[in-house]
Simulated scan of single mutants.
Amino acid sequence: MRLTVYLAGEIHTSWREEVKQKAAALKLPIDFVGPMEDHDRSDNIGEEILGKQPDAIFKDAAASSFNNLRTEILMKKADLVIALFGEQYKQWNTAMDASAAVAYGKPLILIRSEQHHHPLKELSRKAHATVENVDQAVKALKYIFE
């Protein structure tokens, strides 16, 4: 059995590569998908598809339409979602994706530090599991196959 895991969260650090490498080292049969990690492409996809937009608001609206389309398709096809709330960046997209996973009925592993316990307490209660780091999330993935 293979699983498809959607990796939701900020796109500025290498946490996804860390998850993928650790899962590969354990020989876990997992295919990983996630948001567009090329930030410029994500920001410009609306204009790439629809052409030049009249201002920044329209540019963002066009890009978000295609990014939301991509995210919804990939997340709905996924068997499981891992959402990482990092320390350095605003986490609005992570919150949106984690909430979407809950709404779609997707099993959710939430990664968040202890310091984010309080602000994420409601979302943590909706997740199937809440962990504090990537290593714990990978151990949860491993447990699925044992």
Rank of each mutant, 00 (worst) to 15 (best):
V5A: 00
E10P: 08
I11A: 10
H12I: 02
W15C: 11
W15P: 01
K20M: 15
K20H: 08
Q21Y: 14
A23T: 04
A24P: 10
A25D: 15
L26N: 07
I30V: 01
I30Y: 00
F32T: 07
F32V: 04
P35G: 10
M36R: 14
D38R: 13
D40Y: 08
R41A: 11
R41G: 11
S42C: 09
S42H: 01
D43L: 11
N44G: 11
I45N: 09
I45L: 14
G46K: 10
E47A: 14
I49V: 14
G51S: 04
K52Q: 05
Q53K: 15
Q53V: 09
P54N: 05
I57M: 13
F58E: 15
F58I: 02
D60E: 13
S64T: 06
F66I: 03
N67P: 05
N68A: 15
N68E: 14
R70F: 06
R70M: 13
T71M: 13
T71G: 01
E72H: 11
L74S: 06
M75G: 01
M75S: 07
L80T: 00
L80Y: 01
L80M: 09
V81R: 01
L84T: 07
G86R: 01
E87K: 10
Y89V: 06
Q91K: 11
T94K: 02
M96C: 01
D97R: 12
A98M: 05
S99A: 14
A101M: 07
A101Q: 03
A101H: 02
A103Y: 07
K106E: 08
P107T: 00
I109W: 08
I109Q: 07
I111L: 07
Q115D: 12
Q115M: 05
H116E: 12
H116S: 09
P119C: 10
L120R: 00
E122W: 11
E122Y: 11
S124V: 00
H128I: 01
V131W: 01
V131F: 05
N133K: 08
V134N: 04
V134W: 04
Q136P: 02
Q136S: 08
Q136L: 09
A137T: 01
V138W: 05
K139V: 07
K139W: 00
A140F: 03
L141Y: 02
Y143N: 10
F145E: 00
E146D: 11
E146R: 03
